[in-house]
Design a protein around this nucleic acid. Structure first.
Length: 638
DNA sequence: TCAATCCGTATC
DNA sequence: ATACGGATTGAC
């Protein structure tokens, strides 16, 4: 008898089914193999979960139609992880398994397994020395322990070597390691650091850019134990590493780590859960760890890993905020080149020393939000604290969560009753800078023209957040972070956290002693956090504030998206946990869909996920018309 | 009384 | 989706 997870999209069939194992398949029908089974009269794919003597089902059993290949592609550890993720995200096991187990590539699979992984060379240097207890973390990993840390990385290119040192220490204990990074640029840097630390051939890099055969080849090498270490983009969080001893994620606040397919697991959550279930160590960090990561400190699941204050102070650049519009208006240089004189001076200084200057400008195309005309805090709904926006040419702005019109609005911070739209920066910045510094080369890195690195020498490097090229040596000598209020004024509850993460990414590319000018108000806590180099302190404060406003992660939210009638019926059929509320539905701009938001106290999060899953099973069992997408802990509730 | 058809429900 | 069972209908 074999228990099989059948690959069906129907939520009410989200449970294992029992099949007889024909004698001819007795040997190959092992746990984890891909199978074909007859299911409701049709031949369907599935994964063999386990073999049992007794069937749970009392009816007649069908035989397995075929074992697709003898490769046990689903390990017990990854199965347990997928089950936990499905439960947490109100999704089906099949949906999560599709994310965890890549499609088969028969030709690649036919190549026999190579020799098992050799032990790594001894560590050459301790790349965690600058951090308080960094050496202890490496020692614990090398000794078979499972330290879990939220890591605030010092600025500079050393982050990749630090992570490679952690992976190397884990490998030294005979266990495997998974490292996840947000994008191809960071992957190349982490890959190089791992090669430097471990030598060639002791790890694999997994990314969609490889193409299916190459990617499957690498994935199989991991599954077969030919390598014990993996670095990759978000799907690599599921890599079937043997004897998992360490998970690590770099820059965990980057939203490319959020999986866009249901049930939308975030690579950080995948890895945290995996470390928890497997008893592995964890390094979650970046130049600015996310509010969610810092939440792991509050619950004592992880310990902070940071440099001592004097090390940080020596390494952190001098950050000078430019203040608000009033200051700009008094500044004649600002009117000339739209560049305040302070920024102009910092750039000139670095260029004169023959060094590159980073200019960070926001991307265009953000949803225009509304802010307080007086203190510029994002405008929030008086009822549910959702973000306000003006739909089309409507006179009265409305809440993007619950849809209530904001009549008689008053700012929560300064009590002003005036609203104003947030101004977003534009592409002319690069040309204006070029005019301000004639003869100095201007390089742009944005969108589909991202530069990986720039050569040495005086130059202006204009980049959108996330596209900052690496500068030679320790980094840029100056950075100008423009249009800060545009980043801060986005109608998104994570706007300030995201602005800080992007600013810290720019700081991370700066050399010691660099000057950083940020065009944002010095009195804002998020700007002070940048000046002090204290993103974790900011995230801690932000988490407390969000809890007071019933925002995630202080509360749990779910978004239900689909046709109006389907969403209404789905919401109607739910029995919400105590303290739960429904916001909306409101229309989703640019689509025919609507979105309802369900918000419950944090303690009721598990109950909410269970109830949403029950609702989905019920709707699919009675073939309710229309489909409703459910997204727990959505990032974009703005 | 039997066969054809419809509808609901389970899918091993 | 598809298959199966039970109920329903219509003809002899």
């Amino acid at each position: 008898m074999a228990r099989v997870a059948v690959d069906t999209p129907l939520p009410h069939l989200d449970r294992p089914f029992d099949y007889l194992v024909p004698a001819s398949l007795g040997e190959v029908a092992r746990p984890g193999v891909r199978v074909r089974v007859r299911f409701a009269g049709r031949l369907m794919s599935g994964l063999l979960l386990h073999r049992r003597a007794e069937a749970e089902h009392d009816g007649r059993l069908s035989p397995l139609a075929a074992v697709v290949s003898a490769e046990p592609v689903l390990t017990a550890e990854v199965l347990a992880l997928c089950r936990a993720l499905a439960l947490h995200g109100a999704g089906t096991l099949s949906d999560v398994l599709r994310l965890a187990v890549p499609p088969r590539h028969a030709r690649v699979e036919a190549v026999p397994a190579g020799p098992p992984a050799a032990p790594p060379p001894p560590p050459a240097a301790d790349a965690l020395t600058p951090y308080q207890d960094g050496t202890a973390v490496l020692r614990a990993l090398a000794g078979g322990g499972a330290p879990r840390v939220v890591w605030s990385a010092l600025p500079g290119p050393g982050w990749a070597a630090s992570l490679a040192a952690a992976v190397q220490a884990c490998l030294a204990s005979g266990r495997g390691a998974v490292l996840v990074v947000p994008d191809a640029g960071d992957l190349a840097r982490a890959d190089a650091a791992l090669t430097a630390a471990l030598g060639p051939g002791r790890h694999v890099a997994l990314t969609a850019g490889l193409g299916p055969p190459e990617r499957y080849r690498g994935w199989l090498r991991v599954l077969r134990g030919e390598v014990l270490a993996v670095v990759g983009t978000r799907a690599a969080a599921f890599a079937p590493v043997r004897d998992l001893g360490l998970v690590a994620v770099w820059d965990d606040g980057d939203d490319s780590l959020a999986e866009p397919r249901a049930p939308y697991p975030h690579a950080r959550d995948v890895l945290v859960r995996r470390a928890h279930l497997a008893g592995a160590g964890a390094v979650i960090g970046g130049w600015a760890p996310s509010v969610e990561a810092v939440g792991l400190l509050g619950s004592r699941w992880a310990q902070p890993l940071a440099a001592p204050r004097e090390v940080l102070r020596a390494r952190w650049p001098r950050v000078q905020p430019l203040g608000g519009d009033a200051e700009l208006a008094r500044d004649p240089a600002a009117q000339a080149a739209r560049l305040p004189s302070l920024a102009f001076a910092a750039a000139r200084e670095a260029l004169a020393a023959g060094r590159p200057v980073l200019v960070q400008v926001p991307r265009r195309g953000y949803h225009p939000g509304l802010a307080c005309a007086s203190c510029r805090s994002p405008a929030r709904c008086a009822h549910c604290a959702g973000p306000l926006a003006r739909e089309g040419s409507a006179e009265t702005p409305a809440c993007r969560w619950c849809g209530r019109p904001a009549t008689a609005w008053a700012c929560r911070v300064c009590a002003s009753t005036q609203l104003r739209p947030v101004v977003v920066g534009d592409r002319r910045t690069a040309e204006e800078l070029g005019r301000a510094f004639p003869g100095v080369p201007v390089r742009a890195s944005a969108g589909d023209h991202v530069l990986d690195e720039v050569p040495d020498g005086p130059q202006l490097v204009v980049a959108t957040p996330g596209a900052e090229p690496v500068a030679p040596g320790e980094g840029y000598s100056a950075a100008l972070l423009l249009d800060g209020w545009a980043l801060l004024g986005r109608p998104d509850l994570r706007a300030a956290e995201e602005a800080l993460r992007r600013w810290c990414a720019a700081v991370g590319r700066c050399a010691p002693g660099a000057r950083v000018i940020v065009s944002a108000d010095a009195s804002l806590p998020v700007v002070q956090a940048l000046v002090r180099g204290d993103p974790v302190g900011y995230a801690t404060r932000e988490a407390a504030e969000r809890a007071a406003l019933h925002f995630p992660p202080g509360a749990r939210m779910a978004a239900l998206i689909g046709a109006a009638a389907a969403v209404a019926a789905a919401v109607e059929g739910l029995v919400l946990p105590a303290g739960g509320e429904v916001l909306g539905p409101t229309s989703v701009p640019g689509t025919d869909d609507v979105r309802a938001i369900i918000r419950v106290p944090r303690a009721a999060g598990r109950a909410l996920a269970a109830e949403l899953a029950r609702g989905a099973r019920e709707r699919s069992a009675r073939k309710a018309p229309g489909s409703v997408r459910m997204h727990l802990d959505p990032l974009d509730v703005g």
